[in-house]
Structure formats: C-alpha cells, structure tokens
Design a protein around this nucleic acid. Sequence first.
DNA 1: CTTTTGGGCGCG
DNA 2: AAAGCGCGCCCAAAAG
Length: 596
Amino acid sequence: MPFIYLDIETDNTDKLGLDVFQSRIVTVQMLLPSGKSVIIKDPKNLDNIKSALENNIIVGHNIKFDAKFLKHHFNVTLKNVYDTMIAELVLSGGLYAGKKDMTSLSDLVLRYCGEHLEKEEQKGFKYGVPLTSAQQKYALKDLIYLPEIHKQQQAKIKQLNLETIIDLEMKAIPAMVWLELSGIKVDLEKLEPLKQNALQIKHEVESTIYHLLGDSSINLNSPSQLKKALNNAGIPVEGTNKDELKKYDTPVTNAILEYRDCEKFMNSFVDTLPTYINPITTRVHADYMQIGAVTGRLSCKAPNMQQQPARGKLAKHWKEIFVAEKGKNIVTADYSQIELRIVGQAAHDKKYIDAYNTPGVDLHKRTAATLFHVSEGEVTKTQRGMAKSVNFGLNYGMTGKGLIKKIKSDVGEDITVAQARQYIQAFQKLYPEVTAHLKQASQHGLQNKCVHTLAGRLIRFEDPSVIIERTLPDRIKQYENTHHKIPSPETIAYMRGDIRNQVLGKIGRQSKNYPIQGFCADLLKIALHEIFLKLEPLGVKFIATVHDEVVFECDENQTEYVKQVVKDEMERAGKHWFTDIPCICEVFHGSYWQKD
DNA sequence: CTTTTGGGCGCG
DNA sequence: AAAGCGCGCCCAAAAG
C-alpha cells in the first residue's frame, strides 16, 4: 500500500487549538506517492480525497491529532496509519515515554536529518485568511522530513526485531482516536450528594483535630506543621504518612487520616471533574498517551480516567456518576487475573497451569492452603487475602519488610519478620518454575540493560552509572544536613557503592515486572484494533480504558452483541501466546460504569 | 514572583 | 530510603 504523508494546521493555536471540538482545520498538507505536494486551504469537505485517505497508509507525526480533526470535521476515518512519534517511542524501548522533549517533530528532524526545525511561523493560521508565503513554506516544511525519518525508522525497526510491536501500536491508533472523540458522560446530579457527604465528614473531623491538638492555626495539609503539632501533643510521629499514622491508632491520628481521605476526594476528583466537561459535547474527553509508560502501558490525563476512586468509604458510589445516555448501556470488560496468568504462562509453571485449567480452583486459596497448612476448603477470608498479597508481591521481588507492610494495608493483619520470611520461602518452594523464571528475568535485565515482553516489545533500562551520578549530589547534601560537614572521599565512595546496590536492586525488580506489565499492554492494544474494526462503524462509543479494562457505551439493543465481540476479541488477542493457561475476559453491563 | 521538588495518595 | 512495579495530580515548601 502506498504512503501519503499528512499534516494539518488548525486555527486558535492557543489552548483551544488543541480542542478538536472548538477549532477548525485551516489547511491539509500532503505529500503524495507521486512525490507531488498538495495544500488544501479552508476545506469545506474532503469528499474528493476521502477514499484516498481511507485506503492508503497515512504517515504523520502524532497522527492521532490529525485523525481526530479529520474524523470530527469531515467524517474521514483513518484506518491505516504510521506515526513517527509512536514509532520513536517504541524504538527507544520506552525510555522516551513521558518525555515530551525527546519525541517532538523537531527532535526527530535533528536526530535523523541533522537539521534544526524552527517552529515560529506556526502561530497565526486563521480560517478564511489567505496564507502568506512564509506560512505556505512552513506548512510544507513539517512534511518534507517525514519520508526520510520514516525510512530510517523502518531500518531500525527491522534491526531490532520490532515489526510485531510497531504493527500492533499503529493498528491501535484508530482506537485511540475513537476513544478520545467518544468521551464519557458525567451525571452531575449524582455528584452532589457525594460532595455534601464528604464535606460534612471533613468539617466534623477538622474540628475534632483542632480540638484534640488545642491549636486551630495549623495547616492540616502541611506535613511539617502537622508533625510538629502531633509531637507537641505527645505523639512521637516521625512522619505523617498513612503507615506512620496508622501505627498510633489514636483519636487524633485517625481523624487526620479521615481528613486526608476527604481532602484527596474533594480536591482531586469532586471539584475537578466538572471542569473537564466539554461545552460543545457536554462529555469528558480525557487525553490518553498511547505509550505513556516505559512498559508500553497507556497513561491518561486531564482528567486521569485511570485513577478514578473505586475503593474506600467515600468512593463507594463514585463510578456511578459515569453514566450511559438515555436508552444506552455501558459495557465493561476486564482481563481476569491477567498478570498472574502471564507469569504462569511465561514460566510454564506446572501448578499455575493446573490451577487455571481446573474449574473452580482459586490460585490464592491454593497458595493459602500451603502457607497455613490447611486444606483448601478450610482457608479463611483473611488467609486468602494474605496469600493474594504474597502471590502478587513476590512476583515482583518483594522482600520480607515489604510483605509485612503490604499485608498490613491489604488485610489489616500484623505478621512478624520471621513469618514473612517463611511465607516467601513457602511460595518459592510451591512455585519453583515461577521462582526460577523471575530470577532469570532479573539476571537478564541486569546483564542486557533491557527486557522483552512475550510479543517482543523492547523495554530498556537507563545506564546504572548515569543514575548513580545523578543521585549522588542529593545523598551528599543529605549527609551535609545531618552531619554538618562535607563527606570525606571515602564516605563518598561508600555512598556510590550503596546507591549502586539500590539502583541494581531496582533494575532487578523492574526486570521481573516490566515483561508482565508490558505484555498486558500488548494484549490490550491487539484487542483494541479488532474491536475498533467491528464496533466503531456501528456507532458504539469507546469511553474509557484502564490497563486491563475497556469500557464502551452502546444502544440497549446492541448490548449482548457488544459484550460478545469485546469478550471474544480480548481473549483472542492472547491466543497465540497463552498455550498452557487460558486468557479470560469478563464482561458486564449496566446504566453506569460498574464491574459486577 | 514563578517553577521545581517532595510527600502523599488515587488507580491498575 | 530507587526495601514490589507503573502512572498523574494535589498541596506546601524550597529553589531560582
């Protein structure tokens, strides 16, 4: 299939210019397979090139942006795309994720063509105003480097064996366009009672705290002021974080914890969500980044739909504010215990394979039975909860101390260091293949400074010595603050060694976790492409996704079909790799966002 | 005065 | 304190 290189300019180049619903396309520029360049000024429609755009591979830098405008304004759906920005993120092994200053077009032009791209003329494109010759030149300049970048990237992709990953990433782009244009509906009337409840609790605990501390002048949001006040009140806290405060279990520390919950809930969610409602669509259109994390996971902002409250007292009914339009349903689907299944599959662990292939068997219960020397039927809820913490935590290299903390926060149970050690040993003995696999992953990562997912995604590590030198000044400063003198060269050498151990330890743990997290992202993206092809043309909306979960909005009478398609495609995405353990997706529906 | 950093915490 | 991993966002305090 031939390539068409494409870029657009929009009006309102300030903040509104980024909003597809509040600005217009001023120009569409293209480099055609023939080598000819075309500028379409103030397009009224794109009917004459619609089929060319939909039936060729469209190459662009951050093509999601252009594709959203083409879809919304002219109903042109780009289905085959190649994005030089996404490709660069894949090629970097995730190292450029979240680093905007590494993946801009000018960065790539410099990296691949050795030229500096000025961005000055970009401002001032106005709808209906003729282009100056400088603007015309600028419009094309963004285009002319793309073929060379594209060509060089292709060579690197081949060299690094990243064809499969590039393919799944490019195919996922139309789904991301679909997701951001769809948006999600928020019911503000449902938000009000949640707000009043949180406010009332907040005011109550606030006065309780001030009363108990005997000082109403302190800022409860200031950790330093709070610590001082607690110390004055005879509570010797060393910090004010949750774990530290929980240790004391006094009326005032408990009230502070409750105050924090309210503050977080109010400031981060209740008060901000309404500000993101788009005035044109009256829906919330979050900004998703396709490779937002080193592992290939998506990230999301403005607002972050991936961190909407779901547990805890205040959050109990929060997700119910995300609703379907009248006459529609919300369909949610999520992978069942996907990370554990990935580990078990990658390690070909006999007991994992058996557990996930035997109906009615629960891996956590099975682990608990061994840890506590009881039969599976006798396992209590608490024991299962503790085993769950062990299963999840140990898969990523958690140590005894970490396990104690995890079990305390997950199930509220106190265990000793000896018990923690014993659980870890029991786990390792119970699942020898998983244990060996993780150890091997850690060694591989440290040796090669990179790891791969089952689908072949490359995930790189930064050079340890660079991290060490970057961290050292902070450590020295810390020493100076506590000892009031400059550390000796011997001390500095010791610090280097200490930091080195920490950095290498972290890379070892990341090597265990990255392939699992990354492969889950691979699966999700593979599925999204197929789901897009089947459901987007039917008018179904793709309204949210959270790592192992996807959420859609469809007509009530489409519900069963949508559930079936989503479940099938999510599971089919993993078929090629899940040869020993089934990959299962669970689907639900209702009038709001729910997972049961 | 604005920008950066750090503690803390929401989700998977 | 880079003692399980990944992210974004809030606020206060420090830094420029």
